[in-house]
Design a protein around this nucleic acid. Structure first.
Length: 888
RNA sequence: GGAGUGUUAGCUCAGUUGGUUUAGAGCACUGCCUUGACAGGGCAGGGGUCGUUGGUUCGAAUCCAAUACACUCCACCA
């Protein structure tokens, strides 16, 4: 037989993935009598391409889902993509710009056509890439957050929440991009790390009916005409007397109140703050507290409007006006200071223009009441977060939860179903369809002549998270007419067999960054519509970083291409590489060496198989030592499996993998196979051979969730299998009782073996040279046959101590290997003295403990007995070593 | 500014309610091995006063306090 000595994943992986697909193993359906195990994928952006974060995240999900499938559960992993309104729209706009098309030249419909074309062309690439990783998703259920049904569900939820009184319209300070003429989210505002240099100007405002002045500090003098107040800290002795008086805005002489507010810092600037509610978020809040007027002096394109009351500024850009007004202030002799300072200026990620804070009417969800159950569910461990430290973060967020602004000034997304019939602030209705809207509008306005053409739909779309929050529900059609009760605003699970079977889902695997954006909001939706959690566990992965702890990013170019890695190391290698070093919640310091380690592991398994498959079989009886080896490995296997289950129960994926890794590499390859391996050229007895194949199969099962491809390949190489016998749908082993004494016995066997090998190593004796091992140990008798094989020795049980020999001590027994040449007595003596010293030191610390009366009386009996045993063992050992020393 | 987490071997991390030899693993490192499944390998080995200082206890990596350092999240100075 000629099998390559190196495992080649390339052909194997595509073959088995196709095989799994062909046999529909990934597809799940509701089944009576079967337990469901559902995972919904965190839907990646349609425009996305696979990066290392996805690799980690989806590997974990696949491990969980494959294990569940093998455990006989109806395992359902729902894949899909998110329309990601901001990110996608930005990409489409950029693409159009490259073609010379401006978004502003397009109608909404035309733009959407381009966007859909883009989505059809590039959307979902990432899902294809996931297949290379081995992801066993139920592809028939692939979803998209802008599918027609999904869209309808999102709108339905909006209307429902509006009718329940959770949604309202309100003023809010938003980030405005004056070049792109759009709102941008906080995430799209970037601040230079070290801030930017700016100048803080001090300007004198006259106090009304007085010669006194108050000096304020500002870095935006062009907003002076929008001032509607001046604030000082009420604790500030310097200015307290001014509170309640009025000041005059330079040039335009508007009277504005001087107010006291804690927000003002005593030691920054001049201690006096001009308040411009229309152009600064903090000023807006101060304005709210003190009922200040809001005067918006800046147009959408960043020029000043007529409200600034100074003709020459009107129509000029805000930065030009800044220069102009500085000159004018100087000329008027009221600019009294210019000080350079470093501040953080927000710039638009896309246009790099300075973000203009702007007040506008937006849609909000009231969060306090609606999130109460979701808060409690996590605090009561109804939903478990892994690692649990995120419970704190979650609690903190929930306790201070703020209303959620859900409108976005974009086109790509679910358009807000609000329809305006008049100019008044309250002249609108909210409805699922325009037909319903007309009816509602007639009612509300009292104008029965209203028609569809009289209504204008709100131009904004919903925040992406306001649609992905129903992902675990709507992927099963929860909001369809069949199961959603509009009057109650609740879903009746019993009327939806899919939802009834698969919901709540089992585990959500996602990144901590979106704990609030997404996870919390899914929990809220789950309780609002089903009075039930959407998932039982939330596994929060870390961030994938490079070796220097830097985040992986395109601009740094430090992120490897996952598909290249898969090509180099195999999907199994990359999967295990990612998992080797990723405890939940900890950042993963990615190093290609980890993938190399994963690939080496594949190779190790491959070669273990080559050895077994290459054996000749004889019909001779099974030797006892093989029987012992098999019994030992079974015990070892069961113990390890118990550990693995424990790790899985605690979501310690790395540890679970490491247990499998050590079981395969150390226990199976290094010990078991060496133990049963016949001498060169000799055959193996059939019974041992068959047993070994069974063991190999069990091991492959444990490997499968982590390394699906190589395990499936070898599974079929062991013997021909029918399609109902594929490894992916085989049964996960159940841990059985094991004999702990047997394990101890064999540990002892290994220890003696290591002792022998150590002597070979240090004395330069070849492993091939058969040696004599003389000992008086009684323990060795039961394992002597195995010891002779593993250590390549002949055991002589005798109380005699051969004169010219190397020796080592285990427990209280001494082992001698007679030497063919003269032994260096001094070296032996030195070695023994070192061991003697160590043991004596150890004994001392134990006897010190035992000499302490409060320990003996205070500590539990078990602990004291244990210490006594340690002391006795150490004493025996010391005696043995001392005797040997005397003999030398 | 508010909240939280961490600090154990060169690196990444375990160490479960204080007691199982004088603290473990993987990788890295050192020595030897052209061993017959695998050099992408084998065997053996070295390496840590558990950030620092106090305290509680018969007993502390583990509990408490202070301190230093690192990181994360939230809110952010006109």
């Amino acid at each position: 037989m000629s099998i390559s000595s190196q495992y080649d994943p390339t052909s194997v992986e595509d073959k088995w993935y196709q095989y799994w697909l062909d046999h529909n193993y990934f597809h799940a359906t509701p089944q009576t009598g079967k337990e469901a195990y559902t995972i919904v994928i965190p839907p990646p952006n349609v425009t996305g391409v696979l990066h290392m974060g996805h690799m980690l995240n989806n590997t974990i999900q696949d491990v969980l889902i494959r294990k569940a499938r093998m455990e006989g559960k109806e395992a359902c992993w729902i894949p899909g993509t998110d329309h990601a309104s901001i990110a996608t729209e930005a990409k489409v706009v950029r693409m159009l710009r490259e073609q010379g098309i401006k978004k502003s030249d397009l109608s909404r419909e035309e733009f959407m056509k381009h966007a859909w074309e883009w989505k059809e062309k590039y959307g979902g690439i990432i899902l294809e890439q996931l297949k290379k990783l081995g992801a066993s998703c139920d592809w028939e259920r692939t979803g998209f957050t802008m599918d027609q049904e999904y869209h309808d569900a999102v709108i339905r939820v909006f209307v429902d929440l509006y009718n329940k009184g959770y949604i309202y319209r309100g003023l809010r300070m938003i980030n405005w991009d004056c070049e792109a003429l759009t709102t941008i989210s906080n995430e799209e505002v970037i601040y230079k790390e070290d801030g930017e240099k700016s100048i803080l100007y001090s300007v004198k405002y006259q106090i009304k009916d007085s010669d006194e002045f108050v000096t304020i500090a500002t870095q935006r003098p062009e907003t002076i005409m929008g001032d509607t107040g001046i604030a000082v800290n009420p604790k500030d002795e310097r200015f307290r007397h001014l509170i309640g008086k009025k000041a005059l805005v330079p040039f335009i002489n508007r009277e504005i109140p001087i107010i006291g507010d804690d927000y003002v810092e005593l030691d920054f600037g001049t201690g006096c703050l001009k308040v411009t509610p229309a152009h600064d978020p903090n000023d807006y809040e101060i304005g709210q507290r003190h009922n200040l007027e809001v005067i918006d002096t800046i147009n959408l394109d960043g020029t000043l409007n007529e409200k600034c009351e100074i003709d020459k500024y009107v129509g000029q850009d805000r930065f030009k006006v800044r220069k102009m007004i500085i000159g004018d202030l100087k000329a008027a002799n009221i600019l009294v200071g210019e000080e350079e300072f470093v501040t953080k200026i927000g710039r638009s990620e896309r246009t790099n223009s300075v973000v203009e804070p702007k007040l506008s009417l937006q849609w909000f969800i009231k969060m306090k009441d609606i999130s109460r159950k979701a808060h409690k569910a996590v605090m009561d461990d109804e939903i478990q977060l892994y690692p649990s430290k995120f419970k704190n973060t979650y609690n903190h967020w929930m306790e201070n939860v703020r209303d959620w602004c859900i409108s976005r000034q974009l086109w790509w997304g679910q358009r807000i179903p609000a329809y305006y019939y008049g100019e008044g602030e309250d002249d609108f209705v909210v409805a699922e369809t325009i037909a319903e809207a007309v009816e509602l509008a007639k009612e509300k306005s009292g104008n029965s002549a209203l028609q569809e053409s009289d209504l204008r739909q709100d131009p904004d779309v919903l925040d992406t998270w306001a649609s992905s929050n129903i992902w675990p529900i709507e992927t099963f059609g929860g909001f369809s007419d069949a199961s959603f009760d509009k009057k109650k605003g609740k879903i009746d699970k019993k009327k939806n067999p899919e939802l009834d079977f698969f919901y709540p889902t089992e585990t959500l695997v996602t990144a901590p960054e979106i704990l609030f954006f997404w996870v919390a909001r899914m929990i809220i939706a789950g309780y609002e519509y089903l009075d039930e959690k959407p998932f039982k566990n939330v596994y929060l992965t870390g961030i994938v970083r490079d070796k220097q702890r830097r985040k992986m990013s395109k601009s740094l170019g430090n992120s490897p291409d996952p598909l290249v890695l898969i090509k180099q190391y195999g999907a199994d290698g990359v999967r295990t590489g990612m998992l080797f070093s990723s405890p939940a919640g900890n950042d993963l310091l990615f190093d290609e060496k980890l993938c190399e380690q994963g690939r080496n592991f594949s190779n190790k398994i491959w070669n273990a198989f080559r050895l077994v498959k290459g054996l000749e079989i004889s019909e001779e009886n099974q030797p006892n030592i093989n029987k012992q080896a098999i019994e030992w490995f079974k015990a070892r296997f069961n113990k390890t499996l118990t550990e693995i289950e424990d790790h899985f129960a605690k979501f310690r994926m790395s540890d679970a993998l490491m247990s499998v890794y050590k079981l395969v590499w150390n226990d199976f390859c290094s010990w078991y196979l060496e133990w049963i391996k016949p001498e060169y050229g000799q055959p193996i007895d059939r019974q041992t051979y068959d047993n070994t194949l069974v063991i190999f199969e069990q091991v492959l099962k444990l490997l499968h969730p982590f390394m699906p491809f190589i395990s499936e390949e070898l599974w079929h190489q062991i013997k021909e299998r029918s399609e109902s016998e594929a490894l992916i749908i085989s049964s996960w082993p159940e841990a059985e009782q094991w004999d702990e004494n047997l394990l101890k016995q064999v540990d002892f066997l290994f220890e003696v073996t290591a002792g022998i090998r150590n002597i070979r190593n240090s004395k330069g004796i070849s492993p091939k040279e058969n040696l004599e091992l003389v000992t008086s140990s009684k323990d060795v008798e039961r394992v002597s046959a195995s010891l002779e094989k593993l250590g390549n020795v002949s055991v002589v049980n005798s109380d005699d101590k051969p004169a010219n020999s190397f020796s080592f001590v285990i427990g209280a027994d001494e082992y001698h290997i007679p030497a063919s040449e003269n032994v260096d007595v001094e070296a032996e003596r030195k070695k023994m003295e070192e061991e003697l010293n160590y043991t004596k030191g150890f004994m001392q610390s134990v006897s010190k403990k035992l000499a302490n009366e409060r320990f003996v009386s205070g500590a539990p009996e078990q602990v004291v007995a244990n210490e006594r045993k340690k002391l006795a063992d150490a004493e025996a050992k010391i005696k043995t070593i001392e005797e040997s020393l005397a003999n030398l």
